[in-house]
């Protein structure tokens, strides 16, 4: 009960912040991208925090969702919301096709997923597929452009993502998943269907990235292939998750607010030293806070949601 209350209040405060944020600080795009990165960070969290698989090529699902949703809109004239659901479903199917990657471990998995995302990118952007994907010309959703509606849809997707993480944080399923991370063999012996659970987490995170990608495409409305397959998207989401601390609801939220906030703050106040400051910051964080901010609270004995 108490757990539910805690998680619920974190969830509510976060969503409320995004709901009213644009009235406090009117750069709506910054808030929108904050939601995008938070949802992606939680997607990474579901996979990495609970199973230990770090998908470097997570952006592959994001780009897949962006392209699929855009194509459903432009080629089949579907409603944007239906198209976004379609984008999520497409990412899910791609996730299913790529599920053999889960046989790999550690850095092998990370780099394998990176290769997969690059393969999708180079295929989608290839001129040979111009009739289907528009090749290097990218997508133009000008006819569907609606920043207010896409902002609202993103908020809903973020809510669902946060709710899912909160559920995994406290449910038996989440506990079982974490058991597979700590010691897969004992978990299997305790009757946990290790492989099925892992695939489930993988597909869930793929679905989230697909939905987010679709909504991002709708919001930005004009993009080139390298915009939605930019590896920095993966790296940002991973850094935010690790900085906050995985396997918790609050960790990635804090990670996103602090780091994305700083990113924008540096970008706006000291643009010329931007890359340098951000790099130094990341190195310092890894060296002095290697287990995430949440570890500080846990060390003190607080049970963070």
């Amino acid at each position: 009960m108490r757990n539910k209350l805690k998680a619920g209040s974190v969830l509510l405060v976060t969503l409320l912040l995004f709901a009213v944020g644009t009235h406090i600080y009117s750069n709506e795009n910054m808030w929108f991208q904050g939601m995008v990165y938070l949802a992606l960070a939680q997607g990474i969290n579901i996979l990495y925090g609970f199973t230990g698989y770090l998908p470097f090529g997570y952006v592959g699902f994001f780009g897949t969702g962006a392209y699929a949703a855009s194509l459903y809109m432009t080629d089949f004239h579907t409603q944007p919301i239906v198209a976004i659901l379609g984008g999520g479903a497409t990412a899910l199917i791609v996730g299913l096709l790529l599920s053999p990657l889960l046989r790999l471990s550690g850095a092998y998995f990370s780099i394998g997923s990176l290769a997969a995302s690059q393969m999708i990118y180079y295929t989608v952007s290839n001129p040979a597929l111009q009739a289907v994907t528009n090749g290097p010309y990218g997508m133009n959703l000008e006819a569907f452009y609606n920043p207010t509606a896409s902002y609202a849809v993103m908020l809903v997707i973020l809510a669902l993502t946060l709710f899912t993480t909160a559920y995994l944080r406290y449910s038996r399923t989440g506990l079982a998943l974490r058991a597979t991370r700590e010691d897969a063999v004992s978990a299997a012996m305790a009757g946990i269907p290790v492989v099925r659970m892992r695939i489930m987490a993988w597909l869930l995170s793929a679905l989230i990235a697909g939905l987010v990608g679709g909504t991002f495409a709708w919001h930005i409305s004009v993009f080139y292939p390298n915009t939605v397959f930019d590896l920095n998207v993966s790296i940002f989401a991973i850094v935010f998750t690790l900085f906050g601390g995985g396997a918790s609801l609050l960790g990635p939220i804090i990670g996103m607010f602090v780091l994305y906030g700083l990113y924008n703050w540096i970008g706006i106040s000291a643009p010329q030293y931007f890359q340098l400051i951000y790099g130094v910051l990341i190195v310092m964080l890894v060296l002095f806070l290697p287990n995430g901010i949440m570890s500080l609270f846990r060390k003190k004995g607080y049970d963070v949601p």
């Binding site: 470097f56 990370s110 790296i235 850094v239 690790l242 951000y278 790099g279 990341i282 190195v283 290697p290």
Partner: peptide, 21 residues
């Protein structure tokens, strides 16, 4: 750290940003 192999990805990413800058 808890998971040095994965953290090294992030650390060296940061280093790469510094060197490039």
């Amino acid at each position: 750290a808890h998971d040095p192999e994965m953290l090294s990805l992030i650390l060296f990413f940061g280093l790469s940003q510094i060197i490039q800058a």
